[in-house]
Simulated assay, not measured.
Amino acid sequence: MKTFTTAGPVKPDEHYNIPALSRWDTDEIHRLIQEKRYFVLHAPRQTGKTTCLLALMAELNAGKDYTALYVNVEPAQAARGNVEAGMRTIVGVVAQNARRYLGDRRPGQWVDETFRESGSHGALQNLLSRWSEEDDRPIVLLLDEVDSLVGDTLISLLRQIRAGYPDRPEAFPQTVLLCGVRDIRDYRIHSDDNEIITGGSAFNIKSKSLRLGNFSQKDVMALYAQHTEETGQVFENGVMDYIFEQTAGQPWLVNALGYEACFEMRADQHRTRPITMEIMMEARERLIERRDTHI
């Protein structure tokens, strides 16, 4: 049985969902990729960024024009300013995900050689360059949680991508999308020598920043209609308006209210009974009292 989810990414066969690619302008995304642009997607936490990136990867790989790879760089956060440790983690995740999502084991076979040839400050650029040269299609790299990185590790990541940028697409990814909570212009990076570097200066090849917004009221209604279709349980008049009023369409809140009212409050024992305004108001109070920190 499907359910509301508050711990993405969304899996459409398990969760009620709004189609991820319907939440942003896919024509603009495809144009930016076709034009070989490097750009940013940013939005607050728990809005569906990762779900959208995974959906974009799947769509691009289903076509014949690009090889797309999703990479979450957050594991390198613990390295902080240790570039050697941070880059080994990032390069390792690139290789791991190439094998997992694409069935491509070549990047994993090149890791040690890239560090011997280029060191930690050039290994990522080296790996991406070699992969771009040997792959049959231009590469689109989707980097998630970039603003979780700290200090010189983040500086090195941005500068290695910037250094490879002129070689695209023959010897570097055609497009790199950086995703995080903040726009890159708002990054304030403290290097080991206490120099403060802004993200915009470390990555001045960004052509555009896109922001992923909240659900519309129509989206909220469509999401909750999936619960009715799945279980037969309906919502009283006015409940949908109340949900949108209380959440402003923030995706985590929309799903959390639905899960609380429809599953946690034992409404699932009485699917023939509608979800009333009283039930939804109580669900709201329970969320407030629980003080979840997701957002």
Rank of each mutant, 00 (worst) to 15 (best):
F4C: 04
K11A: 12
K11Y: 09
H15D: 07
A20R: 05
W24Y: 12
D25R: 11
E28T: 06
I29C: 03
I33H: 09
Q34A: 12
Q34N: 15
K36G: 13
K36D: 15
F39W: 01
V40K: 00
L41D: 02
K49G: 02
T50P: 08
L54Y: 02
A55E: 02
L69T: 07
Y70S: 05
A79I: 04
R80W: 09
V83Y: 03
V83S: 04
E84T: 13
A85W: 07
G86R: 00
T89D: 05
A95P: 02
A95N: 09
N97A: 12
N97E: 11
L102V: 10
G119M: 06
L127T: 08
E134V: 14
P138S: 13
L143G: 00
L143D: 00
D147N: 03
L154P: 01
R159A: 04
E170W: 09
Q174D: 10
Q174K: 15
T175W: 01
L177D: 00
D186Q: 09
D193T: 06
I197Q: 08
G199E: 07
G200H: 01
N204C: 07
S207E: 14
F215L: 11
S216F: 14
D219H: 11
V220P: 02
Q226E: 06
H227A: 01
Q233N: 09
N237T: 12
Y242S: 08
F244E: 10
Q246G: 10
A248N: 10
A248F: 10
Q250S: 02
L253P: 05
R266Q: 15
P274I: 03
M280E: 14
E282R: 09
E289D: 15
